[in-house]
Amino acid sequence: MSIYRPEFEAALRLFARISEAMAMRGLSRPVLVGGAAVEFYSASAMMTGDFDLCSPIQVELEEEMQRHGFVRPSGPGKLTRGWIHPNLKLGFEIVGSVPMDGNIAKDRLALVDYFAVGDAFVIVSVEDLIADRMGQYTSGTAADRLDQARALFALHPELDLDYLDRRIHEETMGDHGIEALQKR
């Protein structure tokens, strides 16, 4: 039995297949960031409406997405930055060429073979994801991100606390540190 909601797991499986196809072509795998990474690390306790991806080779990634059935919505009132798959209830969007504006080292990215079938994908570390949520919270544009950061912090007792504290300070321009996650 899966720990994820069915729609998310179906999208995650497709993302893993696309990621593996990119690797088979000798290309870098896209990196899962944003709300889908939050849903992954929270086992669907916090849900997303889309998959945000980072890739320095957007054209090739979009080609692979099209090979796997994705289409770009068109027409009045349609989201034109993202991609949809007719069988999924989640959109996919390439939001950057590198995760977190390049503020994280490649060795902090995790290669995950969740389905144990060889279709692995890359995801931002939970520490960097928490720091990103704190940065968004601090910007004043996303008040709910503090709750997300605190929930992820509580769900992952194995965190590298020194790294996390440093990354939170970086993402919040020094306004917050790890203590913000411990307050209630």
Results as ranks from 00 to 15, higher is better:
Arg108Lys: 09
Val33Gln: 05
Ile94Tyr: 10
Arg81Ala: 06
Ser139Val: 07
Val33Leu: 04
Phe153Gly: 07
Gly69Ala: 12
Met47Ser: 09
Ala142Gly: 08
Gly35His: 05
Ser139Met: 11
Tyr114Glu: 15
Glu60Thr: 06
Val38Glu: 03
Leu27Cys: 09
Leu129Val: 12
Asp107Gly: 05
Phe40Cys: 07
Leu88Ser: 00
Ala37Thr: 00
Arg150Gly: 03
Gly96Arg: 03
Asp132Phe: 06
Thr48His: 05
Pro56Leu: 09
Gln66Lys: 15
Leu111Tyr: 03
Arg81Phe: 02
Lys78Arg: 15
Asn87Glu: 11
Gln148Glu: 01
Glu93Leu: 00
Glu127Ile: 01
Val38Asp: 04
Lys89Thr: 07
Ser125Phe: 13
Leu152Cys: 07
Phe51Ile: 11
Ala151Asp: 08
Arg133Pro: 00
Ala142Val: 07
Gln136Phe: 07
Gly118Leu: 02
Val112Met: 10
Phe70Trp: 02
Val124Asn: 00
Gln136Tyr: 11
Tyr114Trp: 14
Lys89Ala: 11
Phe70Lys: 01
Ser44Tyr: 03
Ser28Asn: 12
Ala149Gln: 06
Glu63Thr: 05
Ala43Phe: 15
Val117Cys: 07
Phe153Ile: 08
Asp119Phe: 00
Asn87His: 10
Arg81Asp: 01
Asp147Ala: 15
Gly102Asn: 11
Glu127Val: 01
Leu90Arg: 14
Lys78Ser: 11
Tyr137Ile: 10
Ser74Gln: 12
Ala131Glu: 06
Gly34Thr: 00
Ala142Leu: 14
His68Phe: 15
Val98Gly: 02
Ala143Lys: 15
Asn103Leu: 15
Gln148Ala: 08
Asp144Gly: 09
Asp52Gly: 01
Ala149Phe: 04
Pro76Met: 15
Gly26Gln: 05
Thr80Ile: 08
His156Thr: 01
Pro73Leu: 15
Leu90Pro: 05
Ile123Arg: 08
Leu88Cys: 04
Ser74Phe: 11
Lys78Val: 13
Arg145Asp: 15
Val59Glu: 15
Arg25Pro: 11
Gly118Gln: 01
Arg150Ser: 04
Ser55Cys: 14
Arg108Gly: 00
Ala23Met: 08
